[in-house]
């Protein structure tokens, strides 16, 4: 890949070890587009990225921002900890589909429930890549992986439907093959005050190559769609259930609304505590 001068400014010491053709390159490029804007405003320092375990997690090695390489499934709790300790920081969580929808699913539902102000990007390739090809919560029914020689007997989770039902305030889907569109989603998600969720379709070239299918079926959500309309969002979410038999896979912002943000409710501005007043009853 030719390295432009522009990209060099966001390069790190780390050598990239993703497979050639990995969908993560597209995601990294989209993230870098947004980071470039932070850098130009000299605000890169107020950004923290958290990743989980899986191929996606290496992204924190490839961008020059503060980052935390966390535990499998626990991206959100770590991100909450950072945000609640330092609410002035912009926190972006990255997770894989096994990470977000399997190991850490309970946290995802609570992220929507709490509405902490952070961005959560799921690198969804519908396969466990790092452990070399088992089915994940979003693999299609019948998926033949290394632990499902006769095909997966389970139907996939539809994360868009799930997050809408859980009360998330920003629900979007992107595709690494639509770079500008994806960068824009990330930009909007960061701008959103509250829990912003993006499911990013990101093919695993080695273990589950879905590029051709996505290229044929992915379609940007029409500007006519009212993203404040919950029913319309749900209807759109149900158009594709990760089945790989679809006519059309909508990408874009499904739903966006405003709700009170968790940290506003729990963080009280620091004030001097008069211990004498506090212990008045104990006649110190």
């Amino acid at each position: 890949m030719p390295i432009t001068k522009e990209k060099d400014l966001l390069a790190t010491y780390a050598e990239n070890t993703w497979c050639p053709g990995c969908g993560n390159f597209g995601l990294l490029a989209a993230v870098k587009k947004v980071l470039k804007e932070f850098r130009e405003k000299n605000e890169l320092h107020r950004l923290v990225m958290v990743s989980g375990i899986g191929c996606h997690a290496k992204i924190v090695d490839y961008v020059p921002v503060n980052s935390f390489y966390s535990i499998h499934g626990r991206v959100l709790p770590v991100a909450w900890g950072i945000k609640l300790a330092h609410p002035e920081l912009t926190v972006i969580g990255h997770a894989g589909d096994g990470d977000a929808y399997g190991e850490g699913l309970a946290h995802l539902i609570f992220a929507a429930k709490r509405n902490t102000d952070l961005t959560f990007i799921v690198h969804n390739n519908s396969v466990y890549g790092l452990t070399t090809g088992q089915f994940t919560p979003t693999s299609p029914k019948g998926f033949k992986g290394r632990s499902t020689p006769k095909g997966s007997p389970e139907t996939p989770i539809n994360p868009i439907e799930l997050l809408l039902a859980s009360g998330a305030t920003f629900v979007a889907r992107g595709y690494v093959g639509k770079l500008e569109h994806l960068a824009n989603l990330i930009r909007e998600a960061i701008r959103h005050r509250g829990f912003a969720f993006i499911d990013v379709l990101q093919p695993c070239y080695t273990f589950f190559n879905t590029y051709e299918f996505y290229n044929q079926h992915v379609k940007e959500i029409s500007p006519e769609h009212d993203s404040r309309d919950f029913s319309a969002a749900m209807e759109l979410a149900l158009k594709w259930s990760y089945s790989f038999e679809a006519e059309e896979i909508p990408i874009g912002i499904f739903y966006q609304t405003e709700k009170p943000v968790y940290e506003d409710a729990v963080i009280v501005p620091e004030k001097k505590v008069d211990l004498g007043e506090h212990f008045r009853h104990y006649h110190l």
Binding site: G98, G102, E103, Y128, L130, T131, T132, Q134, R146, S147, T148, P149
Partner: peptide, 15 residues
């Protein structure tokens, strides 16, 4: 649940 370096155990038993 998948984890390296033991994936051959579930893979053989899945078969």
């Amino acid at each position: 649940y998948p984890i390296t370096p033991q994936n051959e155990i579930p893979e053989l038993l899945a078969r």
